[in-house]
């Protein structure tokens, strides 16, 4: 631990870990899209940056306990949200690891493949559910509005990106993207929504 971290009980910002995670995904996507690595390697590599979710959640919890800076609200609903997201992210990692391992180790029957392939998606649905519960449980109306704004920006961004990419793909201009990437685009949209909140209201929001 550095001297700076020792003097600052809040430690590094959750956005620091989020930024590293996004950068790592950017590198993996660049490697995959330039055929430097194959799709199976890309999938396995994508598991590693997700490990940053744990320090990111811990950093966020430290900030909440420290009273919350200008970029973050505080409250029981947000703590529950972070715990839920950490749980479903962990389940996602486990499901993805099992699916990759089963696919590489043996050739499972179709029914098993369906179950294994469904599990990561269910974990992602869990994250969407956690955001929905945060909107329902958040007692601070201003913070709730910021979350709703972020979600709307994320939805608009993901659907717009999917629409444009879909037609470009049909015209054989861009590579094929698996549909789960639109969930990733949605989460990136949350980040854009947080920036918009910061510009318009001076605070990032709670997601």
């Amino acid at each position: 631990m550095t001297e700076e971290q020792l003097s600052d009980p809040k430690g590094r910002s959750p956005f620091f870990y989020g930024g590293i995670m996004l950068a790592a995904y950017g590198v993996i996507i660049a490697l995959a899209s330039t055929d430097a690595i194959n799709s199976a390697t890309a999938l396995i590599l994508m598991i590693a940056p997700l490990g940053l979710v744990i320090p990111m959640m811990k950093a966020a919890a430290r900030r909440v306990d420290a009273g919350g800076p200008a970029c973050m609200g505080k409250g029981a609903a947000q703590k529950r949200y972070m715990k839920r997201v950490a749980l479903f992210t962990s389940l996602y990692l486990i499901a993805l690891a099992i699916m990759t391992f089963a696919d590489k180790s043996y050739d499972p029957i179709e029914a098993v493949r369906v179950i294994l392939a469904t599990l990561p998606g269910l974990a992602i649905i869990g994250v969407f559910w956690a955001i929905g519960r945060l909107i329902v449980e958040e007692q601070d109306e201003f913070m709730r509005m910021l979350i709703v704004r972020q979600s709307l920006v994320a939805t608009g961004f993901a659907l717009s990106a999917a629409s444009v990419w879909g037609f470009l793909e049909t015209a054989d201009i861009v590579i094929h993207l698996d549909a789960y990437w639109w969930a990733v685009a949605w989460f990136f949209g949350l980040f854009l929504g947080a920036i918009w909140n910061r510009i318009e209201y001076g605070t990032w929001g709670a997601v």
Binding site: Q139, E141, M143, G202
Partner: peptide, 21 residues
Amino acid sequence: GVSRQSVNAIETGKYDPSLPL
């Protein structure tokens, strides 16, 4: 029973509170 950010947003006129608030 709200966040400091909420008070700041109301105070600076960036956010109009609901009737209950």
